[in-house]
Amino acid sequence: MVNLPLSPKLKAIVEVNEAKGNAYALSTLKSGRDYVERFSYALALKREGMYDEAIDVYKDLLKEKEDFIIYNNLANCYVGMNDLRKALEFYQSAINIQPNATTFYNMSQVYREMLDFEKADNYFSLSSKKDFNKIIRYRSISNNNPNRFVIDIGLPTQTIFKYAVLNTSYRNLDTSVLPLYYYPIAAIIILALYLYLMQRLKVNAYSCKRCGSVFCKKCEKRLFWGDMCLQCYRSLIKLDELEPKERISRLLKIYEYRSKKRNIIKILNMLVPGTGHVYAGSILQGLLFLWPLFFFTTLIILNCFCSFGINGYTHYWLNIICLLLIAFTYIITNLITKRRLTRGWV
């Protein structure tokens, strides 16, 4: 969640807010004075069953800032103490500040515990409308861990990041390092420079597939289909001296070879966009098509199988965007391939 040098307090804050552990936070954040430190300490207290201490810390935090997250977690403390009426009061305070899926879900759980199934179903419906994917995760957590009857809300990622910037050695890093938003620009500039140098400096050598001799693109002004040198090409098209049967046979062989190579390129690009270009010798262009395919596919896989705690964030929208970009890459690659083949490529 935060990729910075971790101080002991920051490590404890990250662990408790990502539901990875409470013991370290209890020992490290007990004397904390910062809002983020005290919030995380209260969260660790609650999860360890120290409800009275957690309630005291949360109420002190409410004097500084009325936040729906605090009200939600405070209500969870009362649920742990089996004071469900009091819990509902604080849940309602959270909803009054900001209606959210987590608090609606918790209220549905409490009403179900009180056997008021009508209200429980109503609040569950409200939570599902707010964020259906999040509720699926909550149900899974509740089924796997009976102690997680209601769901706590951790601090937002940006809040922890802000704390990290202000309270860790990140401030002492060399100020000559480029800001993060400069790196994509730098990557584009480097790529453009690379392409320019490749066009100006590279000398591609080709091996004739018929006679085996090596020749360069600068010497041969045109690379004829079949990856043949000019002499072999001339010998094939010098058909006047041949018998009609052999002439037709040679023409058919050339046509079959060309058609076969084109079909292989089409099939490869249909299966994995960009591989057809690599097969045809356009390696750089092929890699440029392959990179977004593998990048967005990797994002989808990581998003499905990697968990970052239950701090209230879902990224299923990212899967949709990645799928659309993969489809766009697939269509563009095949359209470019079809256009180039129509114009006589290979």
Rank of each mutant, 00 (worst) to 15 (best):
M1G: 14
N3I: 08
P8T: 12
L10R: 03
V14G: 03
E15V: 01
E15P: 01
K20C: 13
K20Q: 15
N22A: 10
Y24R: 07
S27M: 06
K30S: 15
D34P: 01
D34R: 05
E37W: 03
E37V: 08
A44D: 09
R47A: 14
E48C: 02
E48M: 07
G49N: 07
Y51Q: 09
E53G: 02
A54T: 09
A54K: 05
D56C: 03
V57E: 11
L74P: 06
M81T: 13
L84Q: 04
R85Q: 14
K86S: 10
E89C: 03
S93V: 01
A94M: 01
P99I: 04
T103G: 11
M107N: 13
Q109N: 06
Y111M: 13
F117Q: 01
F117G: 01
A120L: 09
Y123S: 10
S128R: 11
D131H: 05
I135K: 02
R139T: 01
I141R: 09
I141Y: 01
N143Y: 10
N145D: 15
N145C: 06
V150T: 15
T157M: 03
T157Y: 08
I160L: 10
L166H: 06
L173G: 09
S176R: 14
V177Q: 14
L180M: 13
L180A: 15
Y181Q: 12
Y182V: 06
Y183A: 06
I189A: 15
Y196K: 10
L197T: 05
V203D: 14
S207Y: 00
K209F: 04
C211A: 10
S213P: 00
K217H: 05
W225E: 14
C229A: 08
L242Y: 11
E243Y: 04
P244I: 08
E246S: 08
S249I: 02
L251C: 07
L252W: 04
S259G: 01
K260H: 10
I265C: 11
L268Q: 07
P273T: 07
V278M: 12
G281K: 02
I283K: 11
I283R: 12
F295W: 10
I300C: 03
N303Y: 08
F308C: 01
Y313K: 12
T314Y: 03
I321Q: 09
I321M: 11
L323Q: 03
I326W: 07
A327F: 09
F328C: 15
I332T: 12
I332L: 14
N334H: 05
L341A: 02
R343L: 15
G344Q: 05
